[in-house]
Simulated scan of single mutants.
Amino acid sequence: MNTTTDIHNVEAVVREVLGKHGRLVHDVYRLPKDASLGDAGLTSLASVNVMLALEAEFGEIPEALLTRSVFRSISSITRAMQSLTA
């Protein structure tokens, strides 16, 4: 799961989940992967919906990954979800 293609596949799923559940004020597909999701409109309530949708895609998210820093950007969520699939 360490290939560039796999990272892009995980990122694509993360972007799709954010697009459906994140209630962002910016187009998630144009948002830079390191942009602040808080600045893009992700609220704490929406982040719960995103977390539940991510669990449906990747399996249970360990409590250690349920932090503000993980939900800071697309790239940080992607890294966390990739760690679940490794």
Rank of each mutant, 00 (worst) to 15 (best):
M1H: 12
M1A: 13
N2L: 13
N2M: 07
T4A: 11
T4D: 14
T4I: 12
T5W: 03
D6R: 12
D6G: 05
I7E: 11
H8E: 15
H8C: 14
H8D: 13
N9S: 11
V10E: 04
V10Y: 03
E11V: 03
A12D: 10
V13Q: 09
V13T: 15
V14G: 03
V14A: 05
V14I: 11
V14H: 02
R15A: 03
R15T: 03
R15G: 02
R15Q: 06
R15W: 05
R15V: 03
E16P: 00
E16S: 14
E16Y: 00
V17T: 08
V17S: 04
L18E: 11
G19K: 08
K20W: 02
K20E: 15
K20Q: 15
K20T: 15
H21Y: 13
H21F: 10
H21R: 08
H21S: 05
H21W: 07
G22Q: 02
G22N: 09
R23D: 14
V25E: 14
H26T: 12
H26A: 09
H26P: 01
D27Q: 00
D27I: 02
V28C: 02
Y29V: 01
Y29M: 10
Y29G: 00
Y29R: 08
R30D: 11
R30C: 00
R30T: 09
L31Y: 06
L31F: 07
P32S: 05
D34A: 12
D34Y: 05
S36G: 11
S36C: 14
L37T: 09
L37M: 10
G38D: 09
G38I: 13
D39T: 10
D39K: 14
D39E: 14
D39I: 06
D39R: 13
A40R: 09
G41W: 05
G41A: 10
G41F: 08
L42P: 07
T43Y: 07
A46R: 02
N49W: 08
N49A: 15
V50W: 00
M51F: 04
M51G: 08
M51I: 10
A53F: 03
A53E: 10
A53W: 06
L54D: 01
L54I: 06
E55I: 03
E55S: 05
E55W: 06
A56P: 02
A56N: 14
E57C: 13
F58E: 06
F58S: 05
F58I: 09
G59L: 04
E60M: 08
E60H: 13
P62H: 04
P62T: 12
P62M: 09
E63K: 10
E63P: 02
E63A: 14
A64N: 03
L65N: 05
L65E: 04
T67L: 14
T67H: 09
R68E: 10
R68T: 11
S69T: 14
S69G: 00
S69D: 14
V70C: 12
V70S: 07
V70G: 02
V70R: 04
F71N: 01
R72D: 15
S73H: 04
S73W: 05
I74E: 00
I74D: 00
S75A: 13
S76V: 01
I77K: 13
I77A: 11
I77V: 15
T78N: 03
T78F: 01
R79I: 08
R79F: 00
A80P: 04
A80D: 00
A80V: 02
M81D: 07
M81F: 06
M81A: 05
M81Q: 14
Q82Y: 00
Q82K: 13
S83H: 02
T85S: 10
A86C: 04
A86G: 07
A86S: 07
